[in-house]
Nucleic acid binder design. Structure first.
Length: 436
RNA sequence: GCGGCCAUAGCUCAGUUGGUUAGAGCACAAGAUUGUGAUUCUUGGGGUCGCGGGUUCGAAUCCCGUUGGCCGCCCCA
């Protein structure tokens, strides 16, 4: 058997697999275009430092990284955000605002494989730069929703959980915590859904047990599932920052409601996302049944462009991974099966007939029709079966009898009717068939 | 990085307490049928039973290692 195996976690796309992938990409592109986003691409291989700068050293363990022949430390990209920040940062002053960009690209992470996760995967990334207000979040959450709905998914299938790191920050600040402690509490909040009370262990180890009254307030905040509940909890605290932030929330949820998207969006302050670089609203899309990993995730990262050497530029973005998404489509029966069916299949008698057929085949293909024929001599019966199996609508029959009479027989493979047409008129007749 | 389960044809799998030349269905290909389709029949190609070692007269089967896969944990930029 095969001496060489595919590297673990990598995928091969046989024609059927690729047609499914292309289907997904096609609708994503179409949707992003409808929302006014421009497509870009960038290198697969980047300087290792690009990822270190952003996220610290632990990340290195999950990077495909190595030293190139010029002695440079490089890594296959594990995500698009640092790259797009560099691209935008480099030309920020000359780009028209708002900057609305998207890409569909492959990423690599050295991880243990599991359902919905491999060592290479594709992501749809969309970002808006230069817009500090929640208008950008409205646009992106709408795009995210439509990127899933374009495939026939509905609010029965998925939802978007919306949270806010800023709000958490302001809230915990008002409770008297300093920044280091706030970050530790957010770490616990992030893990709370999975681990329950154990999530606070890491905090306790670092700073001692969280004071009981404080913890109760954190847990209360974490359970909040609606804007009115949020307003009720924050009202007694007051303060300008919180008031302004609640204004952003109203604008965001009001905008989404006006777009008819409120049925997809759930307030859920239990989501904070592990990534250190998020600075404001964060959101994640999940399947409703809760069987799969996150479908998409994103949020605001207003500091990152500057951290990576660009100008100060507010930014929001999200990414949809292809693996979990494809699983969901298959589960819901929304993944079409694609057949590479020709329009026309030619049934050919012998060598002389083959030469006659070639002229028409060339002409039809030049006109854009998908035309196929047997490369070898095959019995007529077989050829008709092949024509039928191929999914072609028409069969053109080039036999000895036809050749003598100067005609070609056209068989409608759907209703099995046949007609004769003069050799010179084949292309025109085929076009007529397909345009009528 | 940690743990559980698994590995036989392109796919889905069978293979008895260890016993002769490892099987079936599907798929693919050829023929029956050198001019008309989803049926049928016949035939064929394709396996060092994931790989390596051990036990044994004898291993797909038992043992050890290894690689790979699925699932969970960690992580998820």
């Amino acid at each position: 058997m095969a001496t060489f195996q595919t590297l673990p976690g990598f995928r091969e796309f046989y024609p059927e697999d690729l047609s499914r992938r292309n289907h997904i990409f096609r609708l994503w592109r179409q949707t992003a275009g409808a929302y006014g986003f421009a497509e870009y691409d960038a290198p697969v291989l980047e300087p290792l430092d690009l990822y270190k700068t952003k996220s610290g050293d632990e990340i290195e363990g999950q990077l495909f990284s190595f030293t190139d022949k010029g002695g440079r430390e490089v890594a296959l990209r594990p995500e698009m955000t640092p790259t797009v920040c560099r691209l935008v940062g480099a030309k920020a002053s000359s780009l028209k605002r708002p900057i609305k960009w998207y890409s569909i690209a492959e990423f690599y992470r050295y991880e243990r494989m599991q359902k919905g996760r491999g060592r290479c995967f594709f992501q749809f990334n969309a970002d808006i730069f230069g817009e500090p207000g929640p208008e950008a979040e409205i646009e992106l959450i709408a795009l995210l929703t439509q990127c899933l709905c374009s495939f026939g998914l509905t609010e029965q299938d998925f939802y978007v959980r919306l949270s806010d790191r800023n709000l958490w920050f302001y809230y915990l600040e008002a409770l008297g915590l300093d920044e280091v402690r706030i970050r530790a509490v957010l770490g616990a909040v992030d893990k709370f859904e999975k681990m329950g009370d154990d999530a606070f262990k890491a905090y306790a180890e670092q700073f001692g047990e969280l004071e009981v009254g404080l913890k109760a307030k954190v847990l209360e905040f974490l359970q909040i599932k609606s804007l009115p509940a949020l307003e009720a909890v924050l009202a007694p605290i007051g303060g300008e920052k919180l008031a302004a932030r609640l204004g952003d929330w109203r604008k965001l949820l009001g905008g989404l409601a006006a777009m008819g998207l409120e049925r997809f969006v759930e307030v859920d302050l239990g989501v904070v996302r592990g990534l250190a670089y998020y600075t404001g609203f964060v959101f994640e899309a999940f399947d409703r049944k809760g069987e799969l990993r996150a479908l998409a995730g994103g949020g605001r990262y207003d500091d990152l462009v500057q951290k990576l050497g660009g100008p100060a530029l507010p930014a929001v973005g999200f990414a949809i991974g292809d693996m979990t998404f494809a699983l969901l489509l298959e589960q819901r029966g929304l993944m079409p099966t694609f057949v590479q069916a020709p329009d026309v299949y030619c049934v050919i008698g012998g060598e002389a007939e083959r030469r006659a057929a070639f002229a028409d085949i060339q002409a039809l293909r030049a006109m854009g029709y998908r035309v196929d024929y047997p490369l070898k001599e095959v019995a007529f019966g077989k050829q008709f079966k092949t024509a039928s199996d191929s999914g072609a609508k028409l069969a053109l029959i080039y036999g000895a009898e036809e050749l003598v009479k100067g005609i070609v027989k056209i068989r409608d493979l759907g209703d099995r009717t046949e007609s004769e047409v003069a050799s010179a008129n084949v292309a025109a007749t085929v076009r007529e068939f397909f345009t009528s």
